[in-house]
Design a protein around this nucleic acid. Structure first.
Lengths: 159, 159
DNA sequence: CTGCCAGTTGCAAGGCGTTCGCAGGAACGT
DNA sequence: ACGTTCCTGCGAACGCCTTGCAACTGGCAG
């Protein structure tokens, strides 16, 4: 998935509620799709397609990488899954949560901070007022240098 | 170039001043490098490597794409060139300017707004105060929906 | 001005993440 | 149980970028 699907988010609690929604969308609930969902729910953190295809390193049924991408796409279209990108790395996929998520990334150490949108509303408002842009940090994060790395950078070069 | 080179920016006015700086760094000033610089200066806007390799569509000397990437890398290391990314597309390269640039991207229509860092300082400060992160929008832009697309989206769905 | 040699070049192959075409296979309404 | 339609795995291909290699060349030593 290279772009974010704009459709409404449909948070689901478990594989079965997700399956119910899939059926209500006219999608089939195949073994491969069920497996993708199982893995995403089990992991509890965003995963790369590769890792899903591997069955979460063997703990679940594995499937074809191409099919995983197609299924993630279908699930994202249905609002059950969403994805985002940290820098240039492969996309990360997660089950849609009731409260959306946005991200901040430290380009130096790779640390990721996950926040709910309300925490970025002041930032968003400033950007909207100044530029008319309604910013989203859910698909592409805010990138910068975290406090720790700033400190480290401030100490080391001093010497 | 997949990551941003951290070195200091070295703004140059033209190919010759850039060449002088290159030599002062111990780099050779080859025909291919001169051509990359000529093209970047002539274009006056950020370019994709592909476009540089093509000699700006035939108007300049063309060169090998691999060499273009290597040269852009070398020039970026030297501070003469920098690059950024708009979404998933290929990187965009430009000559370093005295005043750095940051970007805002409308994910809907693709419009790009280029601003100087001061215009984003309030945003940056808010983020720093709340999260300790020193944000940069020079390598990855702020992404969202621009005023025009917001309006269009607000009208159309009503019908 | 000549010659040398590390730094560069062009070419081709390779890598990563993702997409696509295809033919066989399975979900689900009837 | 059946058939249609969607989905699957496989392999090939793509876009963007990197890399290995042998030939070449910039720029300093002499």
């Amino acid at each position: 998935m290279t772009i974010a699907h704009p459709g409404p988010a449909v948070p689901t609690r478990d594989v079965d509620s997700a399956a119910a929604h899939m059926r209500s969308c006219g999608m089939r609930v195949s073994a491969a799709r069920r497996s993708v969902l199982q893995i995403l729910f089990a992991a509890g953190e965003p995963l790369r397609a590769e890792r899903i295809a591997s069955g979460l390193d063997g703990r679940f049924a594995s499937s074809d990488l191409g099919s995983v991408y197609r299924n993630l796409d279908a699930l994202e279209r249905a609002g059950i899954v969403r994805h985002f990108h940290l820098g240039h790395a492969a996309g990360l996929y997660a089950v849609t949560t009731p409260e959306p998520r946005e991200y901040l990334l430290c380009e130096t150490c790779g640390a990721v901070r996950e926040v709910v949108p309300a925490q970025l509303d002041r930032v968003r408002r400033t950007i909207r007022e100044r530029f008319g842009l309604e910013a989203r940090f859910s698909h592409f994060p805010i990138v910068g240098t975290c406090a720790g790395c700033l400190r480290a950078a401030g100490e080391a070069p001093g010497r």
